[in-house]
Structure formats: C-alpha cells, structure tokens
Design a protein around this nucleic acid. Structure first.
Length: 517
RNA sequence: GACCGGGUAGCUCAGUCGGUAGAGCAUCGGCCUUUUAAGCCGUUGGUCGUGGGUUCGAGUCCCACCCCGGUCACCA
C-alpha cells in the first residue's frame, strides 16, 4: 500500500482502509448520545455490586453500566484480553475488552486500535485484581456496541511516557499538548474559571460588561507601539488597540456609571516570558470613585477569585522539576500594603527621594551595590526614582503591594495628587514581582488632559497622534471616576505558578514555520 | 534587536579525540484473559535544523542563515 512500509501515518492509513473495507465501519464516527465524562463514570463505581458479582456471577448483575469515550493513551494487548487507558478532559479511565464479552469484530477492532484514536466503550464498572476501576466492554440489550471507533487518529502520537516535552512543539501543537499533558488542560480550565469568577464578581457589583473598538484610527490609552492594519473599502490604516481606556471613558461621559471590558490588547513589542504581543486585559471604571475605590475592589476581587478557584489565599509556586518543592509562597491575605514609591525605594536603597537627581557618588554607589542590574540613571529625578523602583524594588514585591504616589510624568491619564502636583493619584499593584494592575483617579479635566497629551507628543519621536474626539468627550464632561486595569495573563501566572505567559495563553504567538505549521 | 543555550528516529534522549548513526518507548510480525511505562521473541525506522566550507573522511571543526528557550533592551 505504501512505499514506506513502516511509516506511522502510512500504517494508520492502511488501517483506515481496513476499517472501511473489512470492518464496514465509519472510522470517523457519528453522533453518539449517552456518553459520560470519565470522571463521572469512575464515580459511578459500586463496590458492593462489584463484590456481589465477583462472589456469584450467576446472580443478577447490579454493577452500573456506563458509556464512555476518550483518546487511547495506552494499549496493552494480552492475547484475548486488551486493556486501554482512555483520557478525556476530566481525566483517565481504564477500559478492558475481553474476547469473550464482545462480538468478534469489536474485539478485532480493539486489537488494531492505535494510540491516539478516540474510541467509545460501554459496559459495567468493576475493579481489576490490582484494584483499578475499569469499564469492562460488553454488549448491552439496546443494540449499542460494546466497543466502537469514534475517530481514527492518523498522525503519529507523542510518546506514551514522556508525552510532548519540546516547548516549541507544545506551543505550536497545543491540541496535542492539551491531551498529552493533563496539567496543561487543568491550567487552561483554571484560566477559564478565573475569568468567569472575575466576570461574576464585577456583575455582582453592578458593573456592566461592554465592548469597545479593537480597530482604532488612533491607538491611545497607553504608551506602546501599535500594530497597523488596513481597511480596504474605506482605504484607511487602522491600529489594533493598545488599550480600551479612552473608549471606556467615553462611556462614562455618556452616562454608564460602572463599566468593564475583558478582552485583548495588542502591543507591537518584544516577546518574553511575561509578554505576548496579544494579551488579555481587564479594565473597569466607576463613576465617583478614585484609585482607592479601585484598590479596594481589586483586592477583594483577587481574593474572591483565589478562594473560589483555588480555595486558599496562600498561593504556592512549585519547582518545575521537583513538584514537591515549594519555591515561593504568595500571601494574598488582606489588607494589602499601601506604600509610596519613594518610601519603598528608601527602604530598599536608603535613597530618600527629595525630587533632586542623584549625585554622581550616589549613582556609583547604587551601581556598585547592584551589579548586573544595568541601572539607567541619566534621566531626571523622577525617572531615576522609577528606574530604581522597577529594577530593584518591584522584583522583590512578592506579596501584593499597592505602590502609590508615582511620578506624574509617566502617567498622563490620571489626576495629580491634591497635595503634590508632581505625583499622580494612582496605585500600581505589584504581586509576584510583577506589575499586575494599575489604578487611577481618572483625569477628567479636559484642559489638563490636553496639556499632558501635547507634552507627550512633543518629546516622542513616534509622534503619537492626539485623540481629539476623546478630548471633546472630556469637554462634554466625565464624572470624577476611578479606573483600573488588570493583566489577566499575569494574574493567571501568579495564581497558578506558571513560569511563562505562554503557559497561560493557549496559542501564544510563534513565528510561522515552513510546511504550514 | 544583542548575548547565551538548544535543534540527532514518531516521542524522550545518548553520541568520547573528526573514522560505518545509537538506546528506550512507539511502529510492524508472532505468543499470552486481570495488565499498570505489562512481558517475551523477532522487525523496521535517519535530509543529524538549512546551506556552504575545511578534511582522505564531518552529527562532531569553521562560516552564514532558520526555528525554539533564556537573559537583556522595548513594554504591561
């Protein structure tokens, strides 16, 4: 049949032909009602019924019968008895196909079943000699098969023991990764639950979920390089959004009191274990709030999510090799520390920020004490403060910390502190050594906002365009408001201990490979 | 974008000083009705990331490029 007699795909295609010609079955299956997930099937096992049946097989068989389906992960053939391990999203369950218990064609089908095939088995639940709960395939009265093929797998499967390890293949072929590595499926489901709980939490508090443009004529709301795309009919370039902020604020202007959006942002920048070009962001705005409103909200939200999804406020990160070993514990117990950036820097370095730039001696001392950190300290006093914070302090903030009184120059969309115009009235929440969430007392003075924008345009080589319509909206009038953003991917990393953002995004961006990968 | 590490059978990995390309599992053929990475006997499978170069001879040395991971830069 094939020129490569031991090519795995060719072997499987031969079997495909046999299934059609000899077995007269559809190798790709049909609608099949009544299948229960493997964990539910396992839970139906009845110890007493099993014992009774083993004691006296002639009595009425009261063992629960289940119909299950899964991908074949292991296939052990012992002459006239075949054991298989099936896997679905809920877990694994063993199936046994005995020559005596099923029609001969179905036994032959079980014999030529390959690793990776999706099969259906029906029969009573009983333990094996070694105590493993097993579905013993057996024909029922209803005309259902005891054992059937649901979908022939043609591609070579990953190894049954090591699975798929190569990170490149895991990210490119996530559909294999998901079934070959159960912890990947588990993490994907954790992420889904985390986002569900965030939505529920916000809805319970009266926030309405809205959708704002992903394609924008002017990409505003953050300092980042955008992706460019093109609309043919209008013949205009558009940008994929870097933030939804300016549109969510327009909704406050229009009269929505509390809105949020959970969706993708796109930033045309480097890729790292903490950065994917598209990432999922929550932004929420509350009229008549401030950064403190939002800090309280995010604190409660993260704790609620942690408790509902993980049942604890103590998040343990484990070694990737030795999963017994706890490498880090994050304590989410409230209240979370609230402390100014200058105070944190002083604690860490002894530098008491007084708005004066560091002296040459201070710079040398800092560099000497922190070799390998590549401190860039040639800017203004405010820039130095931010640089020292980001390089030396933020990575050490494992437990949640609201960093307040951030130099205003880097934050154009927030109000200034009422007692000091040099600082912005905001928080930056750091957990696990990463910035996970910013929160602002939102700037609603249109003239001051315009001043900030014009100041930005002046010194930016990229000539960021000003969203004049947003300024017009502020002139119409936006109530004072609190706003917050939260990086969902990083939150999931923090809660699950995933070391890379690629582990919490099902399909992280990869450079295309030849051959359609 | 810079630097470091990696790319060898379907999977997981060895490959010494430059001297015929290896193992386990998977595949394929046999045996086996309670296995647990089943076992036993046999079998097959390679563009050593790609392209050049050095050499009698390159998986191994040199150059360029591709892809992945990490660190840094940019950024959240």
């Amino acid at each position: 049949m094939s020129e490569h007699p031991h090519d795995i795909e060719a072997d499987r295609r031969n079997k495909l032909t046999r299934l059609r010609d000899e077995f007269k079955i559809d190798p790709f299956g049909q609608r099949t009602p009544g299948i229960v997930p493997l964990d539910q099937a396992r839970a139906k096992y009845d110890e007493q019924a099993d014992a009774d049946h083993k004691a006296d097989p002639t009595q009425q068989d009261r063992r629960p019968v289940v119909k299950v389906s899964g991908r074949v992960m292991q296939h052990r053939e012992m002459g006239n008895l075949i054991f298989m391990s099936l896997r679905d999203a809920s877990g694994d369950l063993q199936v046994a196909v005995s020559k005596k218990a099923v029609p001969i064609e179905q036994f032959k089908l079980a014999k030529i079943t390959d690793l990776g095939d999706i099969v259906i088995a029906q029969g009573p639940l009983a333990k094996t000699k070694t105590g493993e709960i097993t579905v013993w395939a057996a024909a029922s009265g209803g005309g259902d098969s005891a054992y059937a093929m649901a979908c022939k797998s043609l591609a070579p499967p990953p190894g049954k023991w090591h699975g798929l390890q190569d990170p490149e293949q895991r990210y490119r072929k996530r559909y294999i990764d998901l079934y070959a590595n159960p912890q990947v499926m588990d993490l994907a489901q954790k992420r889904i639950r985390i986002i569900d709980e965030i939505r529920g939490f916000l809805r319970e508090r009266g926030y309405l979920e809205v959708e704002t443009p992903m394609m924008q004529a002017i990409a505003g709301g953050a300092a980042a390089r955008p992706f460019i795309t093109h609309h043919n009919a209008l013949d205009i370039d558009l940008y994929l959004r870097i933030a939804p902020e300016l549109y969510l604020k327009r909704l406050l202007v229009g009269g929505f009191p509390k809105v949020f959006e959970i969706n993708r942002n796109f930033r045309n920048e480097g890729i790292s274990p903490r950065h994917n070009p598209e990432f999922t962001m929550l932004e929420a705005y509350e009229a008549f709030g401030s950064w403190e409103t939002m800090a309280g909200m995010v604190e409660e939200m993260v704790c609620t999510v942690a408790e509902r999804v993980f049942g604890t406020l103590e998040i343990n990160h484990r070694d990737t090799e030795d999963t017994e070993k706890i490498t880090k514990t994050i304590n989410l117990k409230r209240p979370w520390r609230r402390v100014s950036m200058a105070e944190l820097v002083a604690e860490r370095t002894g530098w008491k920020f007084d708005k004066q730039p560091l002296s040459a001696q201070q710079i040398d001392a800092l560099r000497d004490a922190n070799k390998g950190k590549d401190l860039k300290l040639d800017g203004t006093a405010a820039e130095q403060l931010v640089e020292v914070y980001e390089k030396l302090v933020e990575p050490t903030l494992i437990d949640p910390t609201f960093v307040t009184r951030v130099p205003g120059v880097i934050i154009p969309l927030a109000k200034r502190c009422s007692d000091d115009n040099d600082f912005a009235d905001v928080y930056e929440l750091a957990i696990n050594g990463q910035e996970i969430s910013p929160g602002y007392s939102e700037l609603n003075d249109p003239d001051e906002q315009e001043k900030h924008f014009r100041g930005q345009v002046g010194d930016s080589e990229e000539q960021q365009k000003i969203d004049e319509d947003f300024l017009e909206a502020l002139r119409v009038g936006m109530p004072p408001a609190g706003g917050m953003g939260l990086g969902i991917d990083r939150l999931v990393m923090m809660l699950t201990g995933a070391p890379s953002i690629r582990d919490v995004i099902l399909f992280p961006l990869m450079r295309p490979r030849g051959g359609g990968d």
